[in-house]
Amino acid sequence: MKTHVTTDINDEAVEFLCEPQHTLLHVLRNELGLTGTKEGCGSGDCGACSVTVNGRLVCACLVLAVEADGAKIGTIEGVANRDSLHIIQEKYLEHAALQCGICTPGLIVSTQALLEENPNPTEQEARYFLAGNLCRCTGYDKIIRAVMDAAQCLRQGA
């Protein structure tokens, strides 16, 4: 039986109907057209579907859509401010920290969560915080450089 859900996605009020067993990832992608959140595994092992729920970083494949009721959801589509990129997005581009780009939305959402929680991470802390975001193209080197650079810019209030 479909359930009515009222939620907030990227600071916009959103309503949808969903089956109770459907995941937030399924609804974001297939019902709401927010395909920036990617599915790589469906089991919480790759991080491509990283989103925030009430400010906390989670895998959308491990959240039921019904749980969004009354919650605030943040997705990759909400990271940039209209056409101006977030500094994290700019740094990913500047450092060539993406190749195919499928993991990039999840990594950027995770990087934002990392830097909100820990504005001055060590490289090791960044690597462990982002361990749940698999990237098969880059070997992570340039991603970590982008993260550290973005962290420094954000600390300096850039």
């Binding site: 992608r29 297939n30 927010l34 395909t35 920036g36 959140t37 990617k38 599915e39 997705t75 990759i76 589509e77 990271v79 940039a80 990129l85 997005q89 990913y92 581009l93 500047e94 060539a96 993406l98 780009g101 499928i102 990039t104 939305p105 950027i108």
Partner: peptide
């Protein structure tokens, strides 16, 4: 070290991959 032309779409989630078309 230029900025890739498809970069904007890929860091904002706009880029459409295999499972993104309905």
């Amino acid at each position: 070290r230029t900025i890739r032309p498809d970069g904007f779409d890929k860091v904002t989630g706009r880029a459409n991959y295999g499972a993104d078309l309905s």
